[in-house]
Simulated assay, not measured.
Amino acid sequence: MIAVTISTAAAAPVASTPAEEATPVRRTRRRGLAPGKRLPASRLIGPALIVALWAAASAAGQLDPGAIPAPWTVVSTAGRLWTVGTLPTDVLTSLGRAGQGFTLGLTAGVVLALAAGLSRIGDALIDGTVNLNRAVPTLGLIPLFILWLGIGETFKIAIIAIVVYIPIYLNLHSALSGIDHRYVELAEVQGLSKIGFIRQIVIPGALPGFFVGLRLGVTGSWLSLVVLEQINATSGLGYMMFQAQNYGQTDVILVGLLIYGIFGLLSDTLVRLIERRVLSWRRTLSS
Rank of each mutant, 00 (worst) to 15 (best):
I166W: 09
I166L: 15
P167K: 09
P167T: 06
Y169L: 06
L170C: 02
L170K: 05
L170Y: 03
N171R: 07
N171M: 05
N171Y: 09
N171T: 06
N171W: 08
L172Q: 05
L172W: 02
H173C: 02
H173L: 11
H173Y: 14
H173A: 10
H173K: 13
H173V: 01
S174Q: 13
S174D: 13
S174T: 14
S174G: 13
A175I: 06
L176N: 01
L176G: 02
L176Q: 02
L176A: 01
S177L: 09
S177W: 00
S177Q: 12
G178R: 06
G178Y: 02
I179Q: 04
I179E: 01
D180I: 07
D180Y: 09
H181C: 00
H181M: 04
R182M: 05
R182S: 13
R182C: 00
R182A: 13
Y183C: 00
Y183W: 14
Y183F: 14
Y183P: 00
V184I: 08
V184N: 03
E185P: 01
E185V: 07
L186E: 03
L186F: 09
L186S: 12
L186P: 00
A187T: 05
A187F: 05
A187Q: 05
E188V: 03
E188D: 11
E188Q: 12
E188L: 06
E188W: 02
E188I: 01
E188G: 00
V189L: 11
V189H: 02
V189N: 06
V189E: 01
Q190M: 13
G191W: 08
G191R: 08
L192K: 10
L192S: 09
S193A: 06
S193H: 09
K194V: 11
K194N: 10
K194M: 06
I195M: 12
I195H: 11
I195D: 04
F197D: 01
F197A: 04
F197G: 04
I198W: 11
I198D: 00
I198C: 14
I198K: 11
I198M: 15
R199C: 11
R199Q: 15
R199S: 14
R199G: 14
R199M: 11
Q200L: 15
Q200H: 15
Q200I: 11
I201G: 03
I201E: 05
I201N: 05
I201Q: 08
V202S: 01
V202H: 00
V202W: 00
I203S: 01
I203V: 14
I203P: 00
I203T: 10
I203M: 10
